[in-house]
Design a protein around this nucleic acid. Sequence first.
DNA 1: AATGAATGAGCCTTCATTCAT
DNA 2: CATGAATGAAGGCTCATTCAT
Lengths: 201, 201, 201, 201
Amino acid sequence: MRVSPRTKEATRESLLAAAADEFGRIGLERANIDAISVRAGYAKGTVYNYFASKEDLFLAVVERASRDAVASARQPSDAPPRDRVVLALEAFCGWVRDHDSFARVFVRECLMGTPSLYPRVIPAEQPLVEALGSIFKALPPAERVRPDVPSDVLALALAGLTDLALAQHWASGGTKPTLAEIPGLVATLLLGPQPQSRGTS
Amino acid sequence: MRVSPRTKEATRESLLAAAADEFGRIGLERANIDAISVRAGYAKGTVYNYFASKEDLFLAVVERASRDAVASARQPSDAPPRDRVVLALEAFCGWVRDHDSFARVFVRECLMGTPSLYPRVIPAEQPLVEALGSIFKALPPAERVRPDVPSDVLALALAGLTDLALAQHWASGGTKPTLAEIPGLVATLLLGPQPQSRGTS
Amino acid sequence: MRVSPRTKEATRESLLAAAADEFGRIGLERANIDAISVRAGYAKGTVYNYFASKEDLFLAVVERASRDAVASARQPSDAPPRDRVVLALEAFCGWVRDHDSFARVFVRECLMGTPSLYPRVIPAEQPLVEALGSIFKALPPAERVRPDVPSDVLALALAGLTDLALAQHWASGGTKPTLAEIPGLVATLLLGPQPQSRGTS
Amino acid sequence: MRVSPRTKEATRESLLAAAADEFGRIGLERANIDAISVRAGYAKGTVYNYFASKEDLFLAVVERASRDAVASARQPSDAPPRDRVVLALEAFCGWVRDHDSFARVFVRECLMGTPSLYPRVIPAEQPLVEALGSIFKALPPAERVRPDVPSDVLALALAGLTDLALAQHWASGGTKPTLAEIPGLVATLLLGPQPQSRGTS
DNA sequence: AATGAATGAGCCTTCATTCAT
DNA sequence: CATGAATGAAGGCTCATTCAT
């Protein structure tokens, strides 16, 4: 049954989405290939027509999540660094809101992934961290927000604290920190309070 | 084969240690009861003479790790708050160095535990966070290091960033941040640079 | 590997037959799922594609045996009651001869089933007993063979003694009472000797 | 710790009683040596000081039950045969009442024992059947109650129907046939109704 | 391409049995 | 004698993976 590339792609997408649901919900080990295929509306065998193994499917989900997360964080702007960080984190949290399943997998892996998959999973957050880092890197010394901390360490800490806040957010049922609070919270913790110069919302 | 309570306790300890090794290395799901027992020098059945199930063994390891971690963090002192935080984190990192296996389980669970065990695992880090929080809580306003952030959020961020730094430490093979660097790094990130009063490195 | 419903049904049948062999030979507890699957020509996992658990497989065997046993006993007839009883028991013994495995499970359960499964197993013999009971129930008082015994008690005793005779038959290697002797033996014991009116075999 | 023969015997007795409880309740396979020893007030190892294996313990229980059951049925008397049968069955049912645990094991095994133990278990009921058979054997032809049935077959049927009635009794929670009804019920079924003063049915 | 029946390695758990204390 | 810690074979069940249809 030949099928158009579009259909193939659509099938692959729905499998990825269903897999993200399961992996985000119960993790790599407990997730069940059969459940994933059924959730996507296919039979078990179909998964293996698109992905070589459970692990491969998982990595495909991580990669997809990583790509989306990074895309969401790219924020061309010439605002002050702190604002740009907040904007990037807000964009990231927006993506989290829209793609909850993928976001959970992404955050889970960035916080503490499956050791045996480290080599293939570790690069996931890298682009996001670099996007944050680049905000500081090209800054003239005068505008450095945290001159006492290397740019890349700061970027890593920003991304990590955001992930932690998201974990808290999910564990608390979405209340403890709300998604909207997270960017400001993380920025304040690491970059200091928002300057009150001349009125802020 | 009646044996002294000491012998029983020793057996239980070696089982716990072996279990911590495995759980810390590959997590609850992938850990194998048989491997744990053999690593401890016993046969599979012996594990079940001491723990009712794999899950119970896991929780016993978590509890033990939690207890030790908390004990390590208790630091009576009247030094300045920042120094006390650093002391507490140094003590914690010292425990991490001495009990690597248990520490990995502890950190792994604090960062992102098994959802199904949440209710029984979540309390693990609580005492540690409170120990940190209490450093700030009883402080006169004049000495507040981060008056712009609630004490408990600050404590949570300190503990979380330390966990993240440890994860990086392990993932990098112990080099990226060394254990010795972590307390200062975390304190600097969240409490600002060490005051240079009259010369410090 | 989509297959026709017929193929599936055939697989299920061969699993049931193999299971009946094992359960009839050594009982529910000692029977081994692996042995059953191999005997049927499949791998262990296949059993679980058709039956949720060992217990479920067992109950499916009992139910199947019960259905067949009952079907064999249904004997529309207007002969004298004693003859009809003998006919019913002969039909039952005929089924026993043709389906030895299932018959052993059936008889074993009727004589003394697994206590924990009582609620689900007890109904097994019920239909057979009722088939026998109905032979007496609709009889005018004048033709009652054993007016001194309630119909249902008599039916229960007939079925029970037949089961016992079968147990003896099997335990003796098929000789003590032969299958052919059982119906007459049981009828004689409970309904009295065959009337010698004008010559019977 | 040397111990008097009386004490040893008492220990053996309590182990036998506890074992009868368990075997009667859940059968040979499901019975648990540890549970038996604890129920008897000893530790697991003690069982193995008295019985070589679980199977041996089981057979010791069966033997003991068999011996008691037979003893209960021995009824010296010169009453009419039917009355002597009823007396023997009443005595047996009396023993059942007083030794419920052992009785369950006995009946369970007589109805349908573990095939693998057949050779060692089959003799259990033999003495009881012979005790019943001897009631008829030495009878002058004039007094034969069921001249149409061989004495030993009749004895076997009497014992078997009594066992079945007991199984019903236990399965029904002690109500369907009460213990007191069983002897008369069985005698009536196989020997005919009780003679009414002058004249029998 | 999709299916889902078949597979079998793997794993947790139970428990009869042994034996040092 | 009694104990109970240690053992390890056994077995039910799961599930990722294969492949004929």
